[in-house]
């Protein structure tokens, strides 16, 4: 049985994040058991409400996997998502919650390796924080 921690919610753009996740899986790369993956038609669909709700429901971190800048099928969905993440980070900070709990992660559809790597980075960041506090 895998561990229940850390609970990371990954909102994945159907054009990039999702294929990257599938790719990571097909390569057998290590991903935390408690990773929750939510497909969205576009990274820009990851709304502030979704992100906050995920944290509210108990997620340790929320990651948004979207296309690289200039690659969005809908022109600016990824840019909107990034701006939202930046805005929410400032709100989290003033809540006394670490802004690193939200991450915007551009990824190419065929780079499962990068996907897994970014998730691992987030896990490590969470771990080191846990140990500190």
């Amino acid at each position: 049985m895998g561990s229940e921690k850390p609970k990371i919610v990954a909102f994945c753009c159907e054009e990039s994040g999702m294929p990257a996740y599938e790719h990571a899986k097909s390569l057998g790369l290590p991903l935390p058991d408690a990773l929750k993956v939510i497909a969205l038609p576009c990274g820009g669909k990851a709304e502030t409400g979704y992100i906050m709700k995920a944290l509210d429901e108990g997620a340790d971190a929320v990651m948004i996997f979207a296309c690289y800048e200039g690659n969005c099928k809908y022109v600016q969905g990824n840019i909107r998502a990034k701006k939202r993440v930046d805005y929410l980070k400032t709100r989290l900070e003033s809540l006394g919650i670490l802004p690193e709990k939200i991450a915007f992660c551009p990824v190419a559809p065929a780079s499962g390796a990068r996907f897994a790597e970014m998730v691992q980075e987030e896990v490590q960041a969470l771990d080191s924080r846990e140990n500190k506090s």
Partner: peptide, 12 residues
Amino acid sequence: MSTQMNSVLRLP
């Protein structure tokens, strides 16, 4: 760590 356990919500 395994790669089979994640819960996934796909586009319906």
